[in-house]
């Protein structure tokens, strides 16, 4: 195997500098759960590896006074899955994390690595779109912020430019009494999703939907959200008919692949059921509060 130069900078600025200097052959490495597997298979052979493991700032989790949560890019899936501070609508992100792969992979993989790789069937992307997250990216010119909806450009492409690294995921406070839910269908426990549905839902005292963001994973180049479909339910009581209408409209926007996990046709058929199930679970979770 070809030797690569290995760097382990202590600051984001240093990481960006080394990556920028390395040019095309440089790659950041976080958990390594995807990158090292690709290196072992000789799919990628980086000249320069920049480990983000020693950058303290990337490992932090925090909540600002306004309720915005900041998840450092190096937070492991296990940490996010068990983050007790991710409650209400923001819990959708913890629930997605808890369904990634299996315990040893959750001990390794990071949120920054997962969204940078942007597997179309990964679990975080739809959850982050449902949670209306913003991605913080550091580059030679400092930090910039990209809404999750504009971050995932489709089929493994993201808004991250060469020389940049993802430094954090920011979650705005969800509306009061909102509930987040993540529904994933996979062939066996720990596999990537055939399809998944992430939603953040809030109702008023009368049971009318006051807030809804819903995104589908595994059925397109990136997570698919359809505000037009959501509008069929917002402002109304979420009846089975309305939810079915939402699903019918949303399915029009999906663009799934045929692959070894399932056919595109199959995926289109299961998404409405996953949506119905996600609503059911979210509404059940709200029950005691209502």
């Amino acid at each position: 195997m070809m030797a690569a130069t290995f760097h382990k900078p202590a600051t984001v600025d240093d990481a960006v500098r080394v990556l920028t200097d390395a040019g095309e052959g440089g790659r950041p490495i976080s958990g390594g759960a995807t990158l090292v597997a690709m290196m072992n298979a000789k799919l990628v052979e980086p000249d320069v590896l920049v480990s983000l493991s020693a950058i303290a700032e990337l490992k932090d989790f925090g909540r600002a006074p306004d309720g915005t949560v900041r998840i450092g890019a190096m937070r492991r899936h296990r940490e996010t899955a068990f983050e007790s501070d991710l409650a209400g609508g923001q819990a959708v992100v913890a629930k997605a994390a808890s369904q990634i792969a299996n315990p040893p992979v959750r001990n390794m993989g990071t949120i920054g690595g997962s969204i940078s790789f942007a597997d179309p069937a990964a679990d975080y992307p739809p959850a982050l779109v449902a949670a209306d997250a913003t991605i913080e990216i550091a580059g030679p010119d400092g930090r910039r912020f990209v809404p999750a909806e504009e971050f995932f450009l489709g089929w493994y492409e993201t808004a991250v430019e060469p020389g940049e690294i993802v430094t954090a995921v920011l979650l705005p406070p969800a509306p009061d009494r909102a509930v987040g839910h993540y529904e994933k269908l996979c062939r066996v426990a720990g596999d990537f999703a055939l399809a998944s549905v992430a939603l953040v839902l809030a109702l008023d005292g009368a049971g009318t939907v006051t807030h809804l963001r819903l995104a589908v994973g595994g059925c397109g180049g990136g997570p698919v959200r359809c505000p037009e479909a959501e509008a069929l339910v917002v402002g109304a009581v979420p009846s089975a008919e309305r939810i079915a209408a939402l699903a019918e409209r949303l399915v029009e926007d999906l663009d799934p692949v045929d692959d070894s996990r399932g056919s595109a046709e199959y995926r289109l058929q299961i998404v409405p059921r996953l949506i119905a199930k996600a609503f059911e679970e979210a509404l059940t979770e709200m029950e005691p509060a209502r």
Binding site: F6, K8, I29, G31, G32, A33, V36, A37, N40, L49, S51, S53, R78, N102, P103, P104, V105, N107, M108
Partner: peptide, 21 residues
């Protein structure tokens, strides 16, 4: 999972872990 070892007390894949790190 055949390569699983404990790293800093947690089970992880040694095949996906770079020794240099």
């Amino acid at each position: 999972g055949a390569c699983t070892v404990l790293i800093d007390g947690r089970p992880m894949r040694s095949c996906l872990t770079l020794a240099a790190n």
